[in-house]
């Protein structure tokens, strides 16, 4: 257990020591970062000029859009960055010889792969948390704007404005749920990339080939469900086994919007089913990776 912890700390240190990692954390959270700046500018402006109906509607749309855009963009670009980080942790370590230095110590192979997996999960969690932190800051700013709307007091607002608008824009619970979904959905991808990285010794080649296969699989899923399935049911059945479908289910815009509005939460059966499948796939990939890694020969 102590060894496992040392190994985990060591892996985290290695990941965070790379300049790449810092760049990824920023790139993955570009939407919340930029939005924070924009909202602060808007806040200063509204505070001096007052706050009217138009601005309220715009703000409402902007903040909702911000969440949707962040979650959606994160789910699109995270695979690229994850593939590179995982490629560095596995493929590059094979070619540089770090792996052989780890494996001649008494740590067991499943421990190595588990520590690496967990450290990458923690890295992903860090990326999600940073985004969440900035989004939360954005929310606070936006709430401040709706509640202290400059010169106008709520009771002084015209009748038509004072109806049915929620006092909050996005609830904290909805925000946390969305971020958890982002994290959980990407676990499956971590498993997929780790499985791949065991067969390559270059992070770049590993990333390109695994992403190509991922995109190929997903294209098949889209074509099969939209067109081919109408010709032959077989395609529909086959498409059910394309694991990436759970990602597009999880991150569909309508679902994100429902969660933002509070009409759906992640404990509802619909979301739980996607989350469950994605955990199951992640576990399957992890077990396969352990099995393959335990028989792998380290030759240089």
């Amino acid at each position: 257990m102590r060894r496992m912890l040392v190994l985990l700390m060591f892996e985290l240190k290695k990941i965070l020591n790379r300049k790449k990692a810092l760049l990824f954390l920023i790139a993955l959270n570009v939407v919340p970062l930029v939005a924070s700046l924009a909202l602060i500018v808007a806040y200063v402006k509204f505070k001096s000029f007052g706050f009217g109906e138009v601005q309220f509607n715009v703000l409402y749309e902007v903040v909702q859009g911000l969440f949707t855009a962040h979650i959606k963009l994160f789910s699109y670009i995270a695979p690229f960055f994850l593939a590179l980080v995982i490629g560095d942790s596995f493929s590059t370590e094979f070619s540089r010889g770090y792996m052989k230095m780890l494996l001649i110590t008494p740590v067991q192979r499943w421990q190595v792969i588990t520590a690496k997996t967990v450290s990458i999960m923690l890295f992903l969690l860090l990326a999600v948390t940073i985004g969440g932190f900035f989004l939360q800051a954005d929310l606070i700013v936006a709430r401040g704007m709706t509640q202290n709307s400059g010169l106008l007091n709520t009771s002084m607002l015209p009748e038509q404005l004072n109806v049915e608008k929620p006092s909050f824009i996005v609830s904290t619970s909805a925000a946390v749920q969305l971020l958890f979904m982002t994290f959980a959905g990407n676990l499956m991808l971590i498993g997929f990339f780790i499985l791949f990285s065991l067969f390559f010794e270059s992070a770049i080649i590993m990333s390109f080939s695994s992403l190509s296969i991922l995109m190929g699989l997903h294209s098949f899923y889209m074509i099969a469900t939209n067109f081919l399935g109408k010709l032959d049911v077989w395609y529909n059945d086959a498409a059910q086994w394309v694991f990436s479908r759970h990602l597009s289910d999880l991150f569909s815009i309508s679902r994100i919007e429902k969660i933002l509005d509070g009409r759906l939460n992640i404990f509802d059966a619909e979301v739980m089913a996607s989350l469950g499948s994605s955990f199951a796939w992640a576990a399957l990939f992890y077990l396969l990776a352990v099995l393959i890694f335990s028989r792998k020969q380290i030759l240089h």
């Binding site: 040392v6 060591f10 290695k14 020591n17 010889g97 770090y98 052989k100 780890l102 110590t105 008494p106």
Partner: peptide, 22 residues
């Protein structure tokens, strides 16, 4: 091993600390 490869960006002491702690 032949041609030991420690982490290039760490010092000798750091490398021995991390790998040795295993």
């Amino acid at each position: 091993v032949e041609n030991p490869t420690f982490i290039e960006t760490m010092t000798a002491v750091e490398n021995l600390y991390w790998f040795g702690s295993l």
